[in-house]
Design a protein around this nucleic acid. Structure first.
Lengths: 210, 210
DNA sequence: CAGTAAGCGGACCGATGGGTCAGGTTAACT
DNA sequence: AGTTAACCTGACCCATCGGTCCGCTTACTG
């Protein structure tokens, strides 16, 4: 249900396949540089193809974005799934690492994944990744690696895992010339918050007793 | 240097002043609903005025945004400054509260403040608020409320205060129908991370030992 | 109650960007 | 080499949006 990239029936021509790759690479670079509203014309120019060629391979701009996101979300999601089936409680810290790896994977395209006007397919990919992260956090909590009152639900509302998904990439994007592992530092801070020994400052329901 | 809103020489007409307020309110609501690219036409319609009237009061759309941001940044910034001049080491927790207050103030307009293509005036306001938060965190650290290796610099690069500034609002915006104080919970988690006892998991320079 | 300048409205303009299409081009196969 | 269908191109179309302009309206002043 999620893995139907509606490939346009396997082309036999080599140039078409090459153009498709050129386009994906150019689009990713262009989006990383110019943000969500990089123009299709610029992407085509960067790929060295005509503008019409873009729409031959990707019906709409949203489809192009979805294709990029699909590439990036696939890897960390698989890693996550594999860790879950491992069933090793001692792997909890490793699971956290997987999340971190996902963060690095997404670095330059996180805003594509998290755009508020994302296409249905991107939303589906996002929610799938959310669910994986939730499961990882759940496992880690069962293993005692995070405090028990950390909220993890399939529903996104009130889900602390959102912090792990969104924060480091987005915050890093506000820093000019960020050190390449700044996101790691931020992630560490949030992990610290999730792991604090319980009792001192309950997270719910009211204000944190500052 | 920062407080010159270049008011257009005090008008004597009551309708103009009223329209200005209507516009600010309408724009804020429209931005909150539709995001950064709410159209000027829609804002005008919502305010019940002509499109030209918008540009009579605000030379450009960016000016309108800056006016909104100015309103929201003013209050928390003043609170912060006041806390700083208090010179009371016991006020550290209160200083945290000030940050929290800032978060609440900005809720719906944080993306205006943090837009990556913000106008010079908005950038100035943002950096001013950053500095205030940095000073607050610095005070709190001096008072022993946060771990010593939390980085706070006037320069934004590598500044952990960015987490406090950006995260809760942004993350909350990814949650559909967020409970009104979800940001508070997220802030509490980050505070927890910043306050963890030192030694166990150093924040710098390398990866957190997960 | 005029007189007047400030204010207002909304048609209009130029720029930009997503998406289309007709016609030339080319890779694969025989 | 010849055939053909898939492919590519870029001029074009249309919608949207920020910003302008000029004639009309209206709130203040004397």
């Amino acid at each position: 249900m999620l893995g139907s990239p509606h490939e346009p029936a396997r082309t036999s021509r080599a140039d078409a396949a090459r153009d498709r790759e050129l386009l994906l690479a150019a689009a990713e670079a262009e989006f990383a540089e110019r943000g969500l509203d990089a123009s299709v014309a610029d992407i085509a120019r960067r790929a060295g193809v005509g503008e019409g060629t873009v729409f031959r391979h990707f019906a709409t701009k949203d489809d192009l974005i979805a294709a990029i996101v699909r590439t990036h979300v696939g890897a960390p999601d698989e890693v996550g799934q594999r860790l879950l089936t491992a069933e090793d409680p001692a792997a909890a810290p490793l699971e956290f690492r997987a999340v971190a790896g996902g963060q690095r994977e997404q670095r330059d395209v996180s805003f594509l994944l998290n755009a508020d006007d994302a296409s249905p397919e991107v939303v589906a990919l996002r929610e799938r990744l959310y669910r994986t992260v939730c499961l990882l956090v759940d496992h880690a909590r069962a293993a005692g690696a995070v405090r028990a009152d950390v909220a993890v639900q399939a529903d996104v509302t009130g889900n602390d895992a959102v912090l792990l998904m969104c924060t480091p990439n987005h915050v890093v994007s506000f820093v000019k010339d960020p050190p390449p592992d700044l996101w790691r530092r931020y992630l560490a801070i949030i992990f610290g918050g999730l792991r604090r020994p319980e009792g001192a400052h309950p997270l719910t329901p009211a204000a944190p007793a500052l």
